[in-house]
């Protein structure tokens, strides 16, 4: 109950944020990214953190939601909410096929197979015609319930809603039979199985919930950006960012993914916008026209993955339980 109260309180604060800040598309945009990554990582965490099944292919479910929605809107001009539901169905079908085959195996096979499935989806989308191939899909016009979809606010609240629902599902699950079973599977599959846990059923259950949430986020993202291609929504990099966010924040904890996203997304944005380089120039430490200044400007923007990598290594070395692990008392 304490966790639910915390979720509601923080959600209310987050909901009030745009009203306090006023109209700032740039800031809202970053916050949307934070919320989306927090929700993606929370959804991944259900499967990876609680059940211990590391999926390296969650982009497939994100892409399934995004592509299904965009295709249905462009072809039939369906209500985006219906398209989102269709996206969930597609993502769950992919998840069921993957899970029913791969969860029979133990150890790292699921991780490897999840990459393979995501790549199959990506390459198929890239080569089919109805998916727009390498050109992607551009959405010129979309409407829902008279909302102003040119503003970022509907998407801010949409992402917030999905995040809150995901956190509530997580908080509920971990205090339920399913949550106990998932953690038992993570700790020892043989012991879990001998105690009456149907391994593949519970792994599939976690995967399905995770894939469904991920696909909803993909749908939202597509309508928000109004353009998708495989490198935006089906890339292995996206899958890895989702995992890193959870690892750095704290795998298998309720708030870890949120903390990870709050840290990493703004950091990536700062690097992308050459924040560091600009700061050094402003401070007069580096001349804008000097070799170093140009180097920073040209290269630092692409460096956020490198920075993620460095932070991950440091986390694994010094904070194996993530940032939230710092605050967890050892029993």
């Amino acid at each position: 109950m304490k966790q639910f109260a915390l979720i509601v309180t923080l959600a209310a604060m987050a909901a009030a944020l745009p009203l306090l800040i006023g109209e700032s598309p740039y800031f809202t945009g970053i916050m949307i990214s934070v919320l989306m990554m927090a929700a993606l990582s929370s959804a991944w965490n259900l499967l990876g953190g609680y059940a211990g099944q590391y999926s390296f292919g969650h982009a497939a479910y994100f892409g399934a939601g995004a592509y299904t929605t965009m295709i249905l809107i462009t072809l039939f001009n369906l209500n985006p909410i219906l398209c989102m539901a269709a996206g969930i169905v597609v993502a769950c079908i992919i998840a069921l096929i993957t899970g029913s085959i791969v969860f029979r195996l133990r150890g790292h096979y699921f991780a490897l197979a999840s990459i393979a499935v995501a790549e199959i989806v990506r390459l198929s989308v890239l080569n089919f015609e109805f998916t727009g191939g390498a050109q992607g899909i551009l959405l010129s016009d979309v409407s829902l319930w008279g909302l102003d979809l040119n503003s970022k606010n509907p998407f801010y609240y949409g992402m917030l809603l999905v995040l809150v629902v995901t956190l509530a599902i997580t908080a509920h699950l971990r205090k339920s039979k399913t949550g106990f079973y998932l953690q038992a599977i993570r700790e020892d599959q043989d012991a879990a199985s001998s105690l009456g846990i149907n391994l593949s059923f519970y792994k599939n259950k976690a995967l399905l919930i995770s894939a469904a949430v991920t696909s909803v986020l993909g749908s939202l993202y597509g309508v928000y950006i109004r353009f998708i291609d495989t490198s935006a929504v089906l890339d292995l990099r996206l899958s890895i960012e989702i995992i890193l966010t959870a690892i750095i924040g704290g795998v298998g904890t309720l708030w870890g993914p949120v903390v990870g996203a709050l840290l990493l997304v703004p950091l990536a944005e700062m690097l992308r916008s050459n924040f560091l380089g600009d700061a050094l120039v402003k401070a007069g430490l580096v001349s804008e026209t000097s070799g170093l200044g140009i180097f920073l400007k040209e290269n630092l923007a692409h460096a956020h993955v490198l920075v993620y990598g460095i932070i991950t290594v440091l986390c694994i070395l010094y904070l194996p339980k993530g940032i939230l692990g710092l605050f967890r008392r050892v029993k």
Partner: peptide, 17 residues
């Protein structure tokens, strides 16, 4: 095969489920 990161009580609860 203890479920190492769970508590003793939680381990037994897994059986009880």
């Amino acid at each position: 095969k203890p479920l190492g990161s769970l508590t003793v009580l939680e381990n037994v609860m897994v059986g009880a489920f």
